[in-house]
Design a protein around this nucleic acid. Structure first.
Length: 354
DNA sequence: TAATCGTGGCT
DNA sequence: TAGCCAAGATT
């Protein structure tokens, strides 16, 4: 290193960085790990309340390893990317069984745990043990792509390799913990995606994109593709006692492992729903009431959700008994539910009959 | 290599 | 307001 990248960055961090986020007090490997997983593709302000509740319910890795899977998922409900929650508990079990309850403190063994990749492993090493390890999250990618005017978008291998090389080279041998926090804070607070505050940046003197007056051209943007439109029936099956039928989704795929409302193929017409419920669940239902549908946008497609409410005479489900439950509304909301299902059940007054 | 996996904030 | 994107990892 011939420039003073890390030095300038740390000086800025001491004055302007974030020093008191919830996971900054008591930086045990367990707390650092949970925070890093929650923060994957998720903004800090969203994570904070989830982190607090999660730590209160699962204070140690042993508590997490021994908890019911439903309990873990319910604490993740609304946070998204639910494979993170499933992997989190798998990893907790591995830490207990393979590492005697102590987190491994090196890159390779951390990456062997499910849900921990190269950047997250490095973040844990730097934050928990204050040892040198290069991270490369969205903030660091943006800072480095601008500072070095790295062409291309980070999805390309050559671009990604270049960014990793810069990340490794800039990471200092001292104050590794502060440095990793500092470069993320810079990306989040100064070198932002839009309207970066270059005038307040400690690295403005060496920033190649700024020298070219092309800051917002970096990093390159990912090529956009049209999102396909999909549709589904979402069934609100209600028995005479006001209980609702919940169905646990398969472990992989969208909302994997979460409890949700039963769905039917959109190829069914409204007049066929009653018969379909009979076939699928062995339930005798009333004619469906259709509720105003809505469009839910995912990263890769749009999903038109068409709710239908049916009254059920006797509440028994013959098929797949382990994956269905009749629950009252408040009991259902205590489970892990997808966000649109949660809002559908939370605001029934918003549901207009068609 | 490219698709998949969620939700909420921002513009 | 519709699209972009965020403390990425997995398949």
């Amino acid at each position: 290193m011939t420039d003073r990248f890390a030095e300038r960055l740390l000086e800025w961090y001491d004055k302007h960085g974030r020093h008191d986020l919830p996971w900054h007090q008591d930086r045990s490997p367990y707390r650092v790990w949970v925070s890093e997983i929650m923060l994957q593709q998720t903004q800090v302000t969203t994570v904070i309340p989830y982190f607090q509740a999660f730590m209160e319910r699962f204070p140690t890795v042993q508590n997490l390893a021994e908890a019911p899977a439903d309990d873990v998922l319910s604490h993740w409900s609304g946070l998204g990317y639910y494979a993170r929650a499933r992997n989190l508990q798998k990893a907790a079990v591995q830490v207990m069984e393979d590492h005697g309850g102590e987190f491994p403190d090196n890159q390779d063994k951390l990456e062997a745990l499910p849900g921990i990749g190269r950047s997250t492993a490095a973040a844990i090493i730097a934050q928990a043990w204050d040892r040198r390890a290069a991270i490369l999250d969205g903030n660091v990618k943006r800072v480095l792509a601008r500072y070095h005017a790295v062409p291309g978008w980070p999805g390309q291998t050559t671009t990604l390799n270049a960014l990793w090389a810069h990340a490794e080279r800039h990471t200092p041998h001292t104050r590794a913990r502060d440095y990793t926090q500092a470069i993320m804070d810079l990306g989040a607070m100064v070198c932002t995606r839009s309207r970066p505050a270059c005038g307040e940046c400690p690295l403005q003197g060496g920033c190649e994109a700024r020298a070219r007056n092309e800051v917002t051209l970096y990093p390159g943007s990912k090529p956009k593709k049209a999102k396909p439109e999909k549709a589904t029936w979402m069934l609100i099956l209600e028995d005479v006692e006001g209980r609702i039928l919940l169905e646990q989704r398969p472990p992989s795929g969208i909302w994997g492992g979460l409890w949700s409302l039963p769905e039917l193929d959109p190829a069914y017409g409204a007049e066929e729903l009653e018969e379909a419920c009979e076939q699928r669940f062995g339930l005798t239902c009333s004619q469906p009431d259709l509720i105003t549908g809505f469009r839910h946008t995912f990263s890769h497609y749009h999903l038109h959700i068409q709710p239908a409410r049916l009254q059920v005479a006797h509440s028994q489900v013959i098929r797949e008994p382990g994956t269905h439950r009749w629950l009252h509304r408040d009991e259902a909301l205590a489970l892990g539910l997808p966000a649109p299902v949660r809002s559908l059940l939370t605001n029934p007054e918003q549901a207009t009959l068609l």
